[in-house]
Amino acid sequence: MTCMAVQRPTFFRGIALICPMLFVSEELKPPMIVTQVFKHLIKPLLPQWPLTPIKDLDGLDFRVQEQGRRLNKVNPMSMQGLKPRLATGCELGFTFPEWMALNLTNLRTPFLIMHGNKDFITDAGLSQRLFDEASATDKAIKIYDGAHHGELICCLPGLGRDIGMEFLPEQFATTETCLSDMAEWIGARL
Rank of each mutant, 00 (worst) to 15 (best):
C3A: 10
A5M: 10
V6Y: 01
Q7H: 07
L17K: 08
P20M: 02
M21T: 14
F23K: 11
F23C: 07
S25P: 07
E26M: 09
E26H: 07
K29H: 02
K29E: 15
P30K: 06
P30Y: 05
P31A: 08
Q36D: 07
K43R: 15
P44S: 03
L45P: 12
Q48P: 00
Q48H: 13
D56W: 00
D56T: 01
L57K: 02
G59V: 04
G59H: 09
F62T: 00
R63H: 14
E66I: 01
Q67H: 15
Q67P: 00
R70T: 00
K73G: 02
V74I: 14
V74M: 04
P76L: 00
P76N: 00
P76Q: 00
M77A: 12
A87K: 15
T88N: 10
E91D: 13
L92A: 06
G93F: 00
G93N: 01
F94C: 05
F96E: 14
P97K: 07
W99L: 08
W99T: 06
M100L: 11
M100I: 09
N106G: 02
N106R: 15
P110D: 05
P110T: 08
I113M: 02
I113G: 04
M114P: 02
G116R: 04
G116S: 02
K118M: 09
I121Y: 01
T122P: 03
Q128F: 00
L130A: 03
L130F: 02
F131M: 01
D132R: 04
E133M: 09
A134W: 04
A136P: 15
D138A: 01
D138P: 03
K139S: 09
K142D: 12
Y144I: 13
G146C: 04
A147Y: 03
A147P: 08
H148D: 04
H149N: 08
G150L: 05
L156K: 13
L159C: 11
F172Y: 15
F172H: 15
A173N: 10
T174C: 13
E176R: 14
T177I: 01
C178M: 07
C178V: 14
L179W: 07
L179F: 08
M182P: 07
M182N: 03
A183E: 14
I186N: 03
A188K: 15
A188C: 10
R189W: 02
